[in-house]
């Protein structure tokens, strides 16, 4: 089982994700758009538009005005997610550790405080987002099974991830070693990590990544398209 998840699936996942998203972006770019959709107030055309689209995509100011409590949940969720993704780079290679240590950063301390906080915050906000789907009428009536499933999947990933951080001993060296070999296709010398929870986590993550191009989660890329539609004047 771990052979399948650890040796074969990662390549399929990357392939599906890259081709899927690439195809989406290609199609979106190619689909004709006669006429503009300008929505005022607009930023000053040119550089201002670009900055404003970036701002919308990273800070969600429209949502900030539209639904403050959702903004808090959504922003903290996404910001934690970004931190966590960055933090995972450490698991793939010791390279980043060396850079940080050279800069005089206490890597372990940063990981346990920053990473730990992000892990807890994302758990809280994901639960919040899930409860919100039940609690608010206007959200409940528009929620499909896939909306719940996506959130449950994310929650399962967070849960397994957090239990590795806070619970059972996580062997960084073995995991790094595994990824180093995976990335260089040197399967012969590879030793697979022996943690069940690691494989569960890794499997679910891959499931999620493969699902992205086919689900609403592609909004992380699509937002640049939809925002530029209304912001260009």
């Amino acid at each position: 089982m771990s052979n399948l998840i650890g040796l074969i699936l990662p390549f399929i996942t990357v392939l599906i994700f890259v081709i899927g998203m690439g195809y989406r972006f290609y199609i979106w770019t190619k689909t004709p758009q006669p006429g503009k959709m300008t929505l005022f107030p607009t930023p000053t055309p040119g550089g201002g538009t670009f900055i404003s689209i970036i701002k919308e995509s990273f800070f969600f100011p429209g949502l900030f005005k539209g639904d403050r409590s959702l903004w808090i949940a959504a922003w903290v969720f996404h910001a934690s997610l970004a931190l966590i993704i960055l933090g995972h780079l450490r698991v793939f290679s010791g390279f980043f550790d060396r850079i940080l240590i050279n800069m005089g950063v206490d890597v372990d301390l940063m990981s346990s405080t920053g990473g730990g906080a992000a892990g807890i915050l994302i758990l809280i906000t994901a639960i919040w987002l899930l409860l919100r789907r039940f609690a608010l009428r206007r959200v409940r009536e528009i929620s499909n099974a896939s909306d719940f499933l996506a959130l449950l999947l994310v929650l399962a990933i967070i849960f397994t991830g957090n239990s590795m951080r806070f619970g059972e001993h996580f062997d960084l060296e073995i995991t790094r070693n595994y990824f180093a070999h995976l990335f260089t296709f040197s399967f012969a010398e590879m030793t697979l990590p022996q943690s069940g929870i690691f494989w569960t986590h890794f499997f679910l993550v891959q499931l999620l990544i493969m699902y992205i191009p086919f689900s609403k989660i592609l909004h992380f890329g699509g937002i640049f398209f939809t925002q530029s539609l209304i912001q260009k004047s």
Binding site: L39, G62, L63, K65, G66, G222, I223, T226
Partner: peptide
């Protein structure tokens, strides 16, 4: 569209 996080109109 003004308030949707993606500007969906």
């Amino acid at each position: 569209a003004t308030f949707c996080p993606f500007g969906i109109d």
